[in-house]
Design a binder for these strands. Structure first.
Lengths: 191, 191
DNA sequence: GAATCTTGAATGACCGTTTAAAAAACTGTT
DNA sequence: AACAGTTTTTTAAACGGTCATTCAAGATTC
C-alpha cells in the first residue's frame, strides 16, 4: 500500500518541479540537475523514477493533458445547450489552474518539440483530435454544415493562439478575462 | 565591392541552411556541424560570419521578419479599402514563399525560445506590435470602437494558431487554401 | 604580397545516465 | 518495544559522449 503511495507522491513532486524548471529555463536548455534542485532531490533519483529525461517530459505532458481533459469533463457536466458546451470547451482551456504562464509556456515548448519526438507527437495528435471532435459536435448543432469547418478552425486556432501569446507574458494571467474574451469570440462566430 | 558581396552571399546561404536544418532537427537540438553540413561549409566558418550560434539564429529570424514585412508592404500597395488591407495583412502571413512547413516550424521554435533570449524576444515584440497596429488601423475603419479589440484578438490569435498547426504538418502546405480560409474568417468577424 | 576566407584539430565545458554503496523504510519475529 | 533482515529510496561520484568555440595554418582572392 505505502509502496505505491511513495512513488506517486514523488512522481507528482517531480512533475511539478519539471513544470517550474522548464518554464524558467526552456525545454531544450533545462538540465536534470536544475529540475532536481527545484524538487529538492538529485538528478539520479529522477532517473530512478522516470527512467530518462524523455520519460520525465512525457509524464509531465501526460499530467497536463489529464488536467485539461478533467477540466473539460467538469464543464460538460453542467452545460445543457450546444452553445453552453462550446463555452465549456473554451473555459476548460482557460481554467484557473491551467491558464498560468508556466503551464502555457510548457505547452508551447511541447508543441515546438512534438515534431521531433514520437512519444510527444503521439500525445499531441490525441489531444488535438479530442478537442477537434468536441468542437465539431457542438458546432454542427449550431451552424449549417458548410460553415462548420470554418468556424471550427477559427475557434481552435484562436485557442492555440491565445496560449501562444500567454506563454510570452511577463505578468500573471487573468483566466476570467480570458474566458470572457473567448465567449465574445464564440459569439462573434455564432451570432 | 566584392568584399561585401561575398559576405552577403555566404550569409544568405548559411541562413537558408539554418532554416532547413532547424526544421529537420529542432532549434534546441540542431548542432553547428549539422547546419554547416547542410550548407556545405564548416562549423568554424559559421562562427567566422555570425560570431556565435545565437548570432546565427538572430540573423535567421531577422531575415524571416524582413520577408514578412516585405510581403505585407506588397499587399498594402494594391489594397484600396480597409477590408482589402485586412485581407492583405492575412495574405502576407500566408504568402507562397512564407507559408511553408520549414518556415512555420522555425517560427514556432522562435516563439518557444524567445522568452529565454533577450535578442530574440526583442524581435518578437517588435514584430507583434507591428502586426497588431496594422490590424487595429483597419478594424477601426470597419467596426464600432467597442468591438475592435475583440476582433483584433480573434484575428491575430487565429493567424498564430494556423502557423502553429502548420508547423506540425507532415505534408506540404497549400498557401492558397490558407488565404481563402483566412478570408472566410475575416468575413465571419466582419460581416 | 596583403587581405580575406576556410577548416581540421584542439580546447574546455557541460550533461544525461550508470553504478555502487549508504540511508531509510518496512517486515515479521521475539 | 526492540531487533535483524529485506526491500525501497537516495545520492555522490564516475563515465562516456557531445558540442560551441577558438586557434593556427593553409587556401583563395584581390
Amino acid at each position: 500500500m505505502s509502496r505505491k503511495r511513495i512513488r506517486d507522491i514523488r512522481n507528482e513532486e517531480l512533475i511539478e518541479a519539471t513544470i517550474v524548471a522548464v518554464h524558467k529555463r526552456g525545454y531544450g536548455v533545462v538540465t536534470m540537475a536544475e529540475i532536481a534542485r527545484e524538487a529538492g532531490a538529485s538528478a539520479a533519483s529522477i532517473n530512478y523514477y522516470f527512467g530518462s529525461k524523455e520519460g520525465l517530459m512525457e509524464a509531465t505532458m501526460l499530467h497536463l493533458l489529464g488536467k485539461l481533459r478533467a477540466a473539460m469533463s467538469d464543464g460538460y457536466a453542467t452545460a445543457r445547450t450546444p452553445r453552453e458546451r462550446l463555452y465549456a470547451v473554451m473555459d476548460a482551456n482557460f481554467a484557473d489552474d491551467l491558464f498560468t504562464v508556466p503551464q502555457c509556456s510548457i505547452w508551447m515548448q511541447f508543441w515546438a518539440n512534438a515534431p521531433y519526438s514520437p512519444r510527444l507527437s503521439r500525445l499531441h495528435r490525441i489531444n488535438r483530435a479530442r478537442v477537434r471532435s468536441h468542437f465539431l459536435a457542438e458546432l454542427r448543432a449550431l451552424l449549417p454544415a458548410e460553415r462548420v469547418e470554418t468556424a471550427r478552425q477559427a475557434l481552435q486556432c484562436y485557442m492555440d493562439g491565445v496560449w501562444l501569446q500567454a506563454a510570452q507574458s511577463e505578468e500573471a494571467l487573468d483566466p476570467e478575462d480570458a474566458r470572457a474574451a473567448a465567449h465574445r469570440v464564440v459569439d462573434l462566430v455564432i451570432p
